[in-house]
Write a protein that binds this DNA or RNA. Structure first.
Length: 504
RNA sequence: GCUGCUAUAGUGUAGGGGCCAAUCAUGUCGGCCUUUCACGCCGACGACAGGGGUUCAAAUCCCCUUAGCAGCACCA
């Protein structure tokens, strides 16, 4: 066998056992399966833990979908945990937006937990941690503490007795300190090679702004509340970005102090997303200053923005599962997302004509014709659109330029003569074969008397024109404007259609 | 700077010592089909970051280099 050149092997095999060859080279696309999770065989408890500072975007979708994927795969519970322990980063409107976005993604959430409901629990565990000598209240200036930390030196507060710490802690809770005046620190290892690990903060005081859901001034930092919650809620597996690797190590100290078993962690790599704005603060500013129309502006990477453009949740889900939980840094590919969306949307979308940048022209010698154009070429049972040509039509300007002939789709051929730079059209027969033979483009058109104004909104800018009257019935649906691409019909106002371009 | 993680076609991914002359998708190009530049079908293009080492055998294990990323907050 080895003596036969590989190229020859295939042809030989083809002669000997063609069915074997076919099996060997059959390209079956198996549904993508992500690597198994350690210790998940008997079910999992996982969580998606967004911060209510704005709506969800594609970055969130990755965490949300991947955790959901494993919950679906192994069975178990999926907790939506709203991490609202920083009043400064809470947008009261975001709570509702989060739930909408989770709903849009069809996450299989079984429980919803608000961390702001659980402050007393965190306080209780903080007291315990102080009691067992795992934490202390630090009243140093933050800048001073930082210097000491970098020098691997203890701050004076670190040596306080448990009783002193408990007193100070109570004083914090009683409002005896102001913002910045005191912080609870977890005792770790001052000589830890990674300065990020040294005596990190667990609680702080926030006086302004007031939390929209709870009356408090002492708030846990995420490493404390997350560790306590992951344990109390029985989280078995955590999938999150690698920006949390350091946090995982910090949280480990808390698990160890309490003698808890930490969950299994997977940290996926950074995902860069080009072409849209993702930072919540950047989006917020842009909306406030009028650069963006709102959280669903098509230049943003929020789920509501891409949904508005006609991207289906299932496409997002499928794209995220394809990306998976690899630790490599990746760049998110809109192309791949669009391809997946097209697969979902193409069989459903009805076809219509949209004529951008229209020119109205009378066609010389044009017979009156009733054109029947299929709503979907692969599904005749859906029926037809009826377009009546009485001789005057509108055509996309760009399709005429430089041409001597075109065919109007589902209608007839027209000759184009250029007189003083203006197109003069003449009926040139019905035969499709003529158009084929001449390799003439078959273009979209509309009767001059039966058209609806339509604006196709793209990221690059708006495109004005006209579309078929029946598009008005497609609000909320994705349609295909023939030869242009897929678009979601967003609204109809004053008889004009507002459409958002999805992709080709 | 310190601490850590990662490196497979343009993009995303599979492969974790021999089955790799490397998977699948997407993309691009060509063809077929078609009254859309859609869908579908056929074909082509395109990658193991670089250098050492271990081994009979390395994309796979080890080391170095390079590059990217993350963290070093009283954010999450």
């Amino acid at each position: 066998m080895a003596a036969i050149p590989p190229a020859e092997r295939r042809s030989r095999l083809d002669e000997l056992a063609p069915e074997l060859l076919q099996e060997l080279f059959e390209t079956r696309e198996r549904p993508r399966e992500l690597p198994p999770l350690k210790g998940a065989e008997n079910g999992v408890v996982m969580r998606f833990a967004p911060n209510p500072s704005g709506p969800l975007h594609l970055g969130h979708a990755r965490a949300a979908v991947l955790n959901d994927y494993y919950v679906q795969r192994y069975g178990g519970t999926y907790i939506l945990r709203i991490e609202d322990t920083d009043p400064r980063r809470v947008d009261p409107d975001a709570y509702a937006m989060l739930l909408e976005d989770v709903g849009w993604l069809s996450l299989h959430v079984t429980d919803i937990v608000y961390q702001s409901d659980r402050l007393d629990t965190y306080y209780e565990y903080c007291t315990k941690l102080i009691e067992i000598g795992g934490a202390y209240v630090c009243t140093c200036d933050p800048e001073r503490f930082r210097e000491l930390k970098l020098a691997q030196k203890a701050c004076p507060c670190r040596g306080q007795l448990v009783e002193e710490n408990l007193d100070l802690w109570q004083r914090m809770l009683d409002g005896g300190f102001h913002e910045g005046g005191a912080t609870v620190r977890v005792k770790t290892d001052l000589t830890h090679p990674d300065p990020a690990m040294r005596d990190f903060s667990a609680f702080r005081i926030v006086n302004v702004p007031i939390h929209p859901r709870v009356d408090a001034t002492v708030y846990p930092l995420m490493n404390f509340s997350v560790a306590v919650d992951d344990h109390l809620l029985g989280i078995t597996h955590v999938i999150r970005g690698k920006d949390h690797i350091a946090n995982t190590r910090r949280q480990r100290y808390i698990f160890d102090y309490f003698g808890w078993m930490p969950p299994v962690y997977r940290h996926y790599g950074r995902m860069s997303i080009s072409g849209v704005v993702l930072s919540t603060s950047g989006m917020r500013e842009g909306i406030a200053s009028g650069v963006y129309t709102g959280w669903d502006d098509i230049h943003l990477g929020t789920l509501r923005a891409i949904a508005r453009r006609g991207i289906q949740a299932e496409a997002v889900r499928s794209a995220m599962v394809e990306i998976g939980i690899g630790e490599t840094d990746i760049s998110f590919s809109w192309e791949n997302l669009y391809a997946r969306n097209k697969a979902i949307v193409d069989p459903k979308a009805n076809r219509y004509f949209f004529v951008p940048d229209p020119v109205e022209v009378a066609i010389g010698n044009a017979p009156r014709r009733v054109a029947q154009a299929a709503l979907h070429p692969n599904d005749p049972s859906r029926g037809f659109r009826t377009l009546i040509c009485e001789g005057t039509v509108i055509l996309p300007r760009a399709e005429l330029e430089g041409r001597g002939m075109v065919r109007l789709k589902d209608l007839f051929n027209v000759r184009i003569d250029w007189v003083d730079g203006r197109p003069v059209l003449t009926y040139a027969g019905d035969a499709l074969e003529d158009a084929r033979r001449e390799k003439v483009p078959i273009i979209q058109w509309l009767p001059a008397g039966a058209k609806v104004p339509c604006v196709l909104r793209r990221q690059e800018g708006d495109q004005a024109g006209f579309c078929e009257p029946r598009v008005v019935e497609e609000v909320g649906n994705v349609v295909q404007f023939e030869r242009i691409g897929f678009a979601r019909i967003d609204a109809v106002s004053k008889g004009a259609v507002d459409a958002f371009f999805a992709h080709r």
